[in-house]
Write a protein that binds this DNA or RNA. Structure first.
Length: 155
DNA sequence: GCCAACGTTGGC
DNA sequence: GCCAACGTTGGC
């Protein structure tokens, strides 16, 4: 079995919030619609059971709100192949799909969310990709960083 | 392959 | 709403 890895995904709560994830069947959703190669590559590296920090961007406040897990590894994004879908990508072909999301499921509530401001001032978190890379919507998190967020969140 | 123009993300 | 950072596109 592969070592568990840790990740962070961003979502605008106005578009898809963690509450929306909780309300989804089996508290599971496909992380489809991602159209960024770096983000896509990270999703391809994800394994079942990996833990995922769920971050609310463009929110007040912007914060890591909950923990989720990968329940299905990368598979072809059906929204990229559907001409009627807003995320349709004519360059993605059924034989060789360009985009492959994973499925994630809500697992753990953080009693306290960790705001971006908290992250920046917390020792051990200042170097998180969240701070360094800014816009990337799917990013790696180190085991240590994950542990700190989980502990601070009281989860 | 270079690079300017343009588009998007996302914090503030 | 502004704008920095960065990704993508397309002319050459």
């Amino acid at each position: 079995m592969a070592t568990r890895q840790y990740w962070l995904v961003k979502s605008e709560p106005g578009t898809f919030s963690f509450d929306d994830l909780l309300a989804s069947p089996n508290k599971t959703t496909s992380w489809d619609g991602v159209r960024n190669y770096a983000a896509r590559n990270f999703m391809r590296e994800m394994n079942k059971g990996d833990r995922v920090l769920f971050y609310h961007s463009s929110a007040d406040p912007t914060a890591i709100v909950r923990i989720a897990e990968v329940v299905r590894e990368a598979y072809p994004d059906p929204t990229a192949l559907d001409p009627a879908h807003p995320h349709y990508d004519p360059k993605s072909k059924r034989e060789s799909p360009t985009w492959d999301p994973v499925d994630i499921r809500a697992v753990e509530k953080l009693a306290r969310r960790e705001t971006l401001a908290d992250v920046k001032r917390t020792k051990g978190l200042e170097k998180m990709a969240l701070v360094r890379l800014g816009r990337l919507s799917v990013q790696p998190v180190t085991a240590k960083e994950f542990e700190i967020v989980q502990r601070l969140g009281g989860g």
